[in-house]
Design a binder for these strands. Structure first.
Lengths: 191, 191
DNA sequence: CAGTTGACCGGAATAGTATTTTAGTCAAAG
DNA sequence: CTTTGACTAAAATACTATTCCGGTCAACTG
């Protein structure tokens, strides 16, 4: 018997959620994958939803770590935002669990999945908001409402990274960076 | 018997689509509302989808007329875009048929409705694109890619008019105009 | 006896089937 | 000729039977 059954369960559940989504993952499945009895899961997690939430919290933490890792105080605010956002959106685009959850949201609309993806978006938004507020304080950009500006940035990034290419030629990372430089940051940065 | 049965049918169908949506509107229903036999509908329209399309084409025409009506060459490009977009989005928000179709897209996802709403969006996009191209030619704004810029404008407007208020305080028309002035047009207009 | 387990329960989802509805046709009526 | 509504086949819906699954807990184990 493993020494860290809680982690085994988390790993098994993550794998199963990534492979089959939230709805199609059964607790029996997770128990089998984790080599524990089903009852054991309920000694660590009060129910399926809480198990899921714990995994998502960790995922958010990972995203923020990756985004932070890519931010360099030597760079301009604009460059940092771009790198961080690309890191986060790339994460969303590559990470198996995220992909599966987006599918599930589109195809089934499982309420718990909707909730969780909302939470992820909130975290990204407040991450950007903080960066903006800091940049203003440091005098790197003009005064503005960080919440609204963060919203514009996120909405536009999502549009270009995910929606644009549904009906048009996909854009490279550099093209998207250019779009932001030209249309969004252009009037707001202080040179 | 009415002299213009085709128009009667169009009116009846518009009413029914507005009230019940595309899927829940039956051809029997339309026939009854229009006071014609069901067969008569098929002498003017080859099928339900074509009848629907004809109504939508007219709707698009109406939208463009309203948008054009509100554009004044004496005003700045920015003001004109704002007024036109607000007119169009207001139209979408108020027009009974549009409201019903958005509902149907959300709740059922009827493919024909998706198609049609896509077409509406395309028309709005190319409307904005044209305005941008003209503004550039006239030297009212800096050189830029009209397609991408139109996309940014539409995406951001939709986000602030429809999505922002799902989780936040709704914004007034003036606040939204200000947001665009501050964050989007700021760097692009030529004063 | 603390920690673990899987058989078991009830409600929820799904599959299978019967019934109804509806887009489109066409022979008859006007 | 144009108009019509009864008709048809296919699709949608309602209904029922069956399976599935989250969560529990009495029994088991070391």
């Amino acid at each position: 018997m493993s020494v860290n059954r809680k982690q085994d369960i988390l790993n098994a559940a993550t794998k199963s959620f990534s492979l089959f989504g939230y709805k199609a993952t059964t607790m029996d499945q997770v128990a089998k994958l984790a080599n524990v009895g089903k009852g054991t899961i309920y000694t660590f997690f009060s129910n399926k939803e809480q198990l899921f939430n714990e995994i998502i919290m960790d995922l958010i933490k990972q995203m923020e770590e990756r985004a932070s890792a890519v931010i360099d105080d030597a760079n301009s605010f604009e460059e940092n935002v771009h790198h961080a956002l690309f890191e986060m959106l790339g994460f969303r685009k590559e990470h198996q669990l995220m992909i599966k959850l987006f599918q599930e949201q589109r195809d089934i609309g499982t309420p718990i999945v909707n909730e969780v993806l909302d939470k992820v978006e909130d975290h990204i938004l407040s991450f950007i908001k903080n960066k903006i507020a800091t940049a203003i304080q440091r005098g790197e950009m003009k005064e503005c409402d960080p919440e609204k500006f963060a919203y514009i940035i996120l909405v536009t990034y999502i549009a270009f990274v995910f929606d644009w290419e549904k009906k048009r030629e996909p854009l490279s990372e550099n093209e998207i960076a250019d779009i932001f430089k030209t249309y969004i940051f252009n009037g707001l940065s202080i040179k």
